[in-house]
Each structure stands twice: as C-alpha cells, then as structure tokens.
Design a protein around this nucleic acid. Structure first.
Lengths: 199, 199
DNA sequence: AACGGACATGTTCCTTAGTACATGTGATAC
DNA sequence: GTATCACATGTACTAAGGAACATGTCCGTT
C-alpha cells in the first residue's frame, strides 16, 4: 500500500491531478520509488471511493485535481508512525554479483565499469539537486527539508554502490568460466544429501 | 525473470532441490533478493518444461533435486552478459522520508533511531559473514569469491543507510504537523495550473 | 488552417510477488 | 509409542507492478 501513502503524502502538500502526481513521482522519486500513471490513476479512484481524497477542482482537458481529506491525512500519518517499515531491498545488481564467477573476466570487467559509471552519474545528479536545495533555491519549508533528506539518502545509496562496483573491479576472482562442475564430465553424486550452502 | 536466473545461477554450482534453493535464498540473499518457496517451486517446474533444468535425483520425502542443463547454463550466462541490468531501487524507508514533515518530531526521532539500529545490525551481520569468508572458512572457490562481492555490497548499502538515518536525525526540520495548508481553513485556489513541484 | 507536442485520463492484459492453506514423511527425543 | 520438529512439495488466491493500447484536448508555431 506504499503507492497509496505516497500519493496521500504528496497530496498533503496541496491539491494535484493524477498527471501532476505522475510527473512528481517520475522527477523526484523516479529512481527510488517508480510508479506509472496507470497505477496512479487507479489508486486515486480507489482512494476517492474510500474517502481519503476528493475532487478539488476540474480544469481543461478533463483535468481533475484531488485534495486530501481529513481521513486521508489521518491515514498517511497513521502509516508514517504506526505501520512497520518495509525494509525490503531488491537490488538486481547485487543478485547478479552472486553469479560473477560464471562470467567471462573481460565481460565482468566491462560490466563493473558500466555499473560504476551509472551509479556515479546517479549520485552526481542527486548531489546537484541537494546543492541547489542547500543554496536555498527551493525555500525551506518543511516539505523541502524532508525532500532534502530523501535526496541525501539517494546520494548515499548511489555513492555506496558506485564505490562497491569500483572495489569489486579490483577484487580478483579466479576464472570460473572453465571447468566448473557442470561441464566437466565427472559425476560426484551430489544432490541427495549434499549441502551446497557454504555455511 | 530475475528469480529464474537466480535459481539457474545457484543450480550452476551443483544440483539442489526446491527446498535447498529456498533455504539458500533465505539465508544468503534473503535481505537482498527475497523469494518465497511457492514461487521457487513454480519456477522450477517451468524451467524443467523449458529444458533449462532436469531432475538429477529423487530422495526421501518426495525430494527432487534438479540439475542445470547446458541450455540452462547458456541462459544464465546470456542473462549475465547481454541483458540490461535492472537498476530499479525501491526503498520504502526513502519514500517515507519524503513525508517526514508530516510526522510528530518525537515520533520521527524515534523512527530514525530504530532505522539506524536496524541498518547497523544488518551491516554488522553481513560484515561478520565477510570476515568469516576472509578468514578462509568457506574456502576460496570462484563461487565463494563472488559471494564475497555480494556480501560486500550488502555491507556497503546497509552502512550507507545507517549513516543516512543518523545524519537525518541531526538534520533539524521545522515542525510541519501544525498549520500545514490542509487544516487551515484558507483556500488559496491551487490545483488548476498550480505547480506543486518545487523545481 | 494545419500540425505537433505537451497535457490529461483512462482500460486491458500479462507477469510477478506474497500470503494462506494443505498435505505428507522421516528422524529424534521423551 | 507418540509427539514434535525439520524436511519437502505443492495449490489457491490476492495484490501489485509494468507494458501496451486507446482516446481526446489545448496551445503554440509555422
């Protein structure tokens, strides 16, 4: 239900349309909490039914701006303070790294260079945002202060991943693309009670 | 399709049953790539149909150990080298931080303490694992070297988040729980062409 | 006047993730 | 003997995410 609460949180700043919200998710949270417009419109419809938001105004081209209700504001505050944080991390790049031993060393080196570059760029992007914020470009409302904290999180996570990729590139690992136990012919009768977990 | 490739990667180390694979995902990758057993069994069934794996042996209690086929090994290598990395990050704690201004300052302070503690513990857990690895406890096969890299990623990401939470706790933000533009009565006619994005 | 691009909202369908439920076996401890 | 626990595999259902498709409007430019 995080999308719901994310939308409510944005609406707590003031009325906005589905289009506005989709754009804000894309621009500010795009890399940290992706959300596509079909989901957003659907969720707005459900929240209106549930009385968490209602229509604030209608504009040109069928625009519908929603406004958060007291119930909606209570709901998002309840979520923030009383609902357990979902600490799920699901980083495909880290999953891949578990299988680096299957890669050709040259491919791996190239892969790690690209990863490092990608994360460095992302970190720089967020850092630039943070600097503009610190220079007072956006004012210093509570909302902007919170955004500053989020951005800092983005910077730190991406920097950590960039440094990790660079560190990994220097971590020599033996070439596992030859002679692993699959393509050699020997059957060592694993499986039945074998424990492949190196615990 | 990352679960599929994750399973193939684990099976590249040697035959294993769905139960084994579920346990390994839980123990090593649990925090970085969650996977539940129903999904794993279902995916194993599909992969067997697709010829990427086949049954290596049957054991007690209906145990079925699968073995990766040449096609399966080719598939996972193809994924590692030629499929674009999915860089999606979806960190609920960072989404929440965007709405810290809605929280009571005391609740927020407690929240950030708990977050810092959680990440610190996670980082310590991974770091302990890394130390055991560096002490040679698991040998130094290519697989173990790769695992070492993954673990290092976990350590760095969790450390970054722990430091972020501690930094955020020191970042004073004005109390936004009173007098935000929702619960004061004034209508400032936002919405129509208003731009809530502080860009 | 015609055209293109940003604005604006939706539906449909498919895949993936996650929870709850359901069943049965083999080993070990009491 | 029997109770319990870890082993072991699955089905069914629900929720969520993501891609593709579909439609229409206002505004600025040429």
């Amino acid at each position: 239900m995080s999308l719901r609460h994310g939308l409510l949180g944005l609406l707590a700043e003031g009325p906005a349309s589905g289009y506005d919200l989709a754009r804000r998710f894309q621009e500010v949270l795009g890399a940290l909490w992706p959300a596509q417009h079909p989901k957003i419109y659907a969720e707005l419809g459900k929240m209106a039914t549930d009385g968490l938001i209602d229509i604030d105004s209608r504009g040109p081209r069928g625009r519908k701006a929603y406004r958060i209700t007291d119930a909606g504001l209570a709901e998002v505050r309840q979520w923030l303070t009383n609902v357990d944080v979902d600490h799920t991390v699901r980083l495909e790049p880290l999953l891949r790294s578990f299988f680096f031993w299957l890669m050709d060393p040259d491919d791996l080196a190239r892969h790690l260079r690209q990863e490092a570059q990608f994360y460095t760029e992302q970190a720089a992007m967020y850092r630039a945002y943070a600097h503009r914020k610190d220079a007072g470009e956006f004012g210093s409302t509570p909302q902007v202060q919170s955004m500053r904290i989020t951005i800092e999180g983005g910077v730190r996570v991406y920097e950590a991943l960039a440094e990790w990729a660079r560190w990994a590139a220097t971590y020599k690992l033996p070439d596992g693309t030859q002679n692993n136990d699959h393509d050699d012919g020997s059957h060592n009768n694993r499986g039945q009670d074998d424990e492949p977990d190196p615990r």
